[in-house]
Amino acid sequence: MKQVIKIPESPDIVSAKENSLKFDDYSVLQHSFQGKEEKGMMYMENHALLFVLEGHSTLSLGEDQYEVGKNEMTLLRKATGVLYERHGNLENNGKYCEMMFSISEDMISTFLATTEKIIPKGTNGKIRTGVHRMSECLITFTDSLRVYFDDSQGVYSGQLRLKMTEMLYHLGIGNDGLFQELLQLRKPVQKEIQHIVEQYYTSSISMEDLASLSGRSISSFKRDFKAIYNMAPAAWIRKKRLDKAREMLESTQLPVAEICFSLGFENISHFSRIFKEYHGQAPTFYRTSL
Rank of each mutant, 00 (worst) to 15 (best):
M1I: 15
K2R: 15
K2D: 15
P11E: 14
D12L: 15
I13P: 12
K17S: 14
S20Q: 15
F23I: 07
D25A: 09
L29N: 06
Q30V: 12
F33P: 06
G35M: 11
G35V: 10
E37I: 10
Y43G: 02
M44Q: 15
L53V: 06
E54G: 05
H56T: 09
L59H: 00
D64V: 02
L76K: 01
L76H: 00
L76T: 04
T80M: 09
L83F: 04
L90H: 08
S102F: 02
I103T: 09
S104P: 10
L112R: 14
K117D: 07
G125M: 06
H132V: 04
R133I: 13
L145K: 10
V147R: 07
D151L: 07
Q153E: 14
G154R: 13
Y156L: 10
S157H: 05
S157K: 06
L162I: 11
L162P: 01
E166C: 04
M167H: 03
Y169H: 13
L185P: 08
R186W: 03
I193K: 00
V197P: 01
Q199R: 08
S206L: 00
L213R: 01
D224P: 02
I228N: 00
N230Q: 10
A234R: 01
I237Y: 00
K239L: 04
K240T: 04
K244C: 03
S251K: 12
Q253E: 09
V256A: 04
V256W: 02
A257P: 00
C260N: 02
F261H: 12
G264E: 02
F265D: 05
F265L: 04
F265C: 07
S272D: 09
S272P: 00
R273D: 07
H279W: 11
Q281C: 11
P283S: 01
Y286L: 01
L290E: 12
